[in-house]
Computed example of a mutant assay.
Amino acid sequence: MKGQHNQGVLNQPHRKRNYKPAIIIITILINGLVALLAGLPGVENFNAFDVKILPLMNAIFNSFTFIFLLAALIAIMKKNVVVHRRFIYTAFITTTLFLVTYVAHHFLSASTPYGGSGIMAGVYYFILITHIILAAVIVPLALTSVARAWNMEDERHRKIARWTMPLWLYVSLTGVLVYIMISPYY
């Protein structure tokens, strides 16, 4: 009797969930918070700790995200879905930690202007602008990619992941490059 009950559960089709409202809300909250913080001056006289450590932490979290995404890409190319999934979840964790330190830094201190000039300023601003735009775009793309995987929509997951993966790799790598280029001016 017990075996028959379990057999019936296993033969039921997977129930797809609608993650779209959550994806929209999370995207608006994250991108809205980042946009809001960009216009704020930062907390005056904050001295609980040196906030200059936060951009370094951002770069470290972005570096780990890049490495985890690369490992996830290699795993899926080898058709190892379990390892791919684990690295994607780990990349989400390091991206979330990045977001926490990023928000904290921009809440606690004013933006640091880039002090370079000439061609390097052009390179810096190109990297920065493309990084900012694609970072806003990657939020719904990454969430939608994961939602489609959770719903076992393999073909739809593959279609969006073909865009999500390279863009997320670009965003995490350029986050590190932005830090390297602006760090002398902190």
Score class of each variant (00 low, 15 high):
M120N: 12
F49K: 09
I25P: 03
I25G: 02
P113M: 08
I93T: 14
A38W: 12
F49L: 10
L56D: 07
N62D: 04
L56Q: 06
K78H: 14
L10Y: 12
V123G: 08
L99K: 07
K78D: 15
F87N: 01
P166A: 09
I88L: 12
T130S: 15
P113S: 11
N11H: 12
A38C: 02
N58R: 04
G32F: 05
A48I: 03
I28T: 11
I60H: 04
N58P: 01
A38P: 00
Y102H: 15
M1E: 11
A136H: 03
N11F: 06
R162L: 14
N6F: 14
P140C: 09
K52H: 11
V81C: 00
L56M: 10
L169P: 02
A35I: 09
H106R: 07
F66W: 07
F49V: 08
G116L: 07
N6P: 00
H106I: 02
G3N: 10
M181I: 11
N18C: 06
L70G: 14
F64R: 04
G122Q: 13
P41Q: 13
T95I: 01
P13Y: 00
G3H: 10
K20I: 15
V146N: 01
H14C: 00
Y186N: 06
L169A: 10
M120A: 13
T174K: 00
E153I: 05
H5N: 06
Y114Q: 08
T27D: 07
P55F: 07
A38T: 06
A48D: 10
F66I: 02
N18G: 03
I24P: 03
A149E: 10
S111Q: 14
I160K: 12
A110V: 04
F66E: 01
V81A: 11
A71I: 04
K79A: 13
N18R: 07
L69Q: 03
A104L: 15
A147D: 05
G3Q: 10
S172M: 03
V137P: 00
M120R: 05
T174Y: 04
L37K: 09
Y179E: 04
I129Y: 13
S63Q: 04
F64E: 03
I28F: 09
W163S: 11
F64K: 04
H14K: 13
V171R: 00
N62L: 00
F107Y: 15
I74Q: 08
H5S: 07
N58I: 02
I30P: 05
Q4W: 06
E44A: 15
G8M: 13
I74P: 00
G3R: 10
I23N: 01
P41L: 12
R162N: 08
R148K: 15
F98D: 01
I26K: 01
F64V: 15
T101M: 05
L169C: 07
H14S: 04
L143V: 04
M120K: 08
P113W: 05
F92G: 13
M77L: 15
F46K: 08
L177M: 14
A142E: 02
H105E: 11
A48T: 05
H157R: 08
M152F: 13
G116H: 09
A48S: 12
L56P: 02
A142C: 08
I119F: 10
S117P: 00
G115P: 05
L141F: 14
L173V: 13
L73M: 11
A161M: 15
L70Y: 09
V34H: 01
L177N: 04
A104G: 05
S109E: 12
M1N: 08
H5F: 08
I138A: 09
V9W: 10
N11P: 00
